[in-house]
Structures are given as C-alpha cells and as structure tokens.
Simulated scan of single mutants.
Amino acid sequence: MRFVPFVALILLAGCTSHEAEPSPSPSPSVSEPPEAEGPVGNLAGAGKDADWDTFVLPCADKSKEPVIQQVVTADVTGDSIADALVARACESSTVEVFDGSSPAQRPWRIDQPLLSSPTAELRRPWVTGVEVQAGEIIIKANGHAIDDDSKTCRRDRLVFAFKLAGTDFTQLRLENNPAGKCLPAG
C-alpha cells in the first residue's frame, strides 16, 4: 500500500500549475460552426469616418456628385448619443442630420435637409461652418441676398439657427450680414 502513494507522488512532482494543458484537437470529420458576427456598430461610432457621400441625398443635377464639406458630431436629439451633421454641396449647400443611434451601414436621416427650404434655396448658401451650441444647430454660410437677381457672386454672410422639435427641425433665426464684396464658394 505504501508503494502506490509514492508512485502517485512521483508522477505529480513533474506537473506544475504553470504548464499549459494540451488543447484537444477537433476531430477532422467535425467542423466548427462559424462564429456569429457581432453588431457592426452604430453611427455614433462611425462619426466622421463614415462614407458620407453614399448616404447624403444626390444632387438635383444628376451629372454632379455631392461634395462633403464638413461632418460634425454632436447630440442634437437629446439622447446623449452623438448625431452626425453632414454639410454637402452641389450647386449650393445643405446640412443633413443623421441619428447617432442608427446603424452605420444605413443611417437614419432626421427630417429634411437643413437649408433646403425655398427661402434658403433662393440664397444659394455655401456652408463655411457647422456647430452645435446648447442643442441649437448653427450653420454659417456665404450666400445671396434675396433681392439679388444676378446671382453672380455670394455677397452675404449668413448665420442660420435650427433646433429639433419632436421629429422636425425649426428654423429659429437667420442673420444676414452683407459683405459688400464677392465671398468664396468652395
């Protein structure tokens, strides 16, 4: 009887807790199921790195491609998730707002693009800056005075302010500061 515990002690003496146990090899005839793909993330995670020109509305002139001018991420919906504000230009600019909780592959546009109202379109705004301050979207743009029929150059510095009310954006104000000279568009 004394011999068995001694042999067991010798066999255990070579094993330590630091040694890795060999992992069993899968049987060649059994294939493992593929791992399920995890969620690929929401728009808030993609932010500025998303392929925005595929998500914004196309230009009215189908021969032109929209140009992404600026992408800003900020919470405009009040859900503590960063939404994406995408300024895009064709003949003039608009700003599209996408819900930050939407999937990065198919972002949800909130309401109509900002600066797409008939009054704003008359000014042919060209976005120079977008920011969010206390839930208000502030858009700076160069544009035309409504009474300017020539439309040869943008002479007004415009500042638009919008706020989300429910599921629609409301324009809070528009400041028009004439520059007295042609301003850049692009």
Rank of each mutant, 00 (worst) to 15 (best):
P22E: 10
N142L: 01
A134K: 15
L174I: 09
D49V: 08
W108L: 10
I10M: 12
R109N: 03
H144S: 07
E65G: 09
E32P: 00
R124T: 00
I139E: 02
A145P: 11
A74D: 14
D147Y: 01
G166V: 10
P103H: 06
L158P: 03
E136V: 12
E136L: 13
F3R: 12
S63V: 05
C90V: 03
P33R: 13
E175T: 14
I81V: 14
C59G: 05
Q105Y: 13
I10Q: 03
Q105I: 10
D49E: 12
C59P: 04
V72F: 06
V30K: 14
A36T: 13
S25H: 10
A60K: 08
K140D: 12
A13M: 12
P58I: 05
D168Y: 07
E32T: 13
R2N: 07
I146S: 11
T16G: 11
D49G: 07
F98C: 07
L12T: 05
D147M: 08
V130S: 01
K64P: 01
G135Y: 09
L11E: 08
I139P: 01
A20W: 04
R124M: 14
R88D: 15
I68Y: 02
L183K: 00
V132F: 07
K64A: 15
D99L: 10
V72N: 07
S63Y: 01
R106T: 15
E136S: 04
R123A: 05
I10A: 13
S31M: 13
R88V: 01
Q133A: 11
D149A: 12
P113K: 08
I68V: 10
P28H: 09
V40T: 13
L43P: 02
Q105H: 14
K64H: 10
G47N: 09
T128H: 01
I68G: 06
V7S: 08
A82Y: 04
E21S: 15
D79K: 03
T167D: 12
G129R: 08
G180K: 05
K163R: 15
L11G: 13
R106V: 13
Q133M: 11
T128K: 00
S92T: 09
V127F: 01
S116A: 15
P28N: 04
S80L: 02
G135A: 09
G45H: 03
V56A: 01
E32F: 04
A82G: 05
F3S: 12
T128I: 04
L11Y: 02
A44M: 03
S93L: 07
V76P: 02
P39V: 04
V127M: 11
V30R: 11
P28W: 06
V95C: 02
K151L: 14
K181C: 00
F98V: 09
L164A: 06
E96A: 09
R154N: 07
L122S: 05
L114N: 04
F55T: 08
S23K: 14
P125E: 09
I10N: 00
T94C: 00
L115R: 02
D61C: 04
A44N: 14
V76R: 02
P125N: 04
G100I: 10
H18W: 09
Q69C: 00
D51G: 01
A104I: 00
L183A: 03
L122Y: 07
D168M: 06
A87Q: 05
P184W: 00
N176R: 10
L57Y: 05
V40R: 10
K48F: 03
A60P: 03
A13Q: 05
A50C: 05
D99G: 04
H18G: 08
V7R: 02
R106D: 15
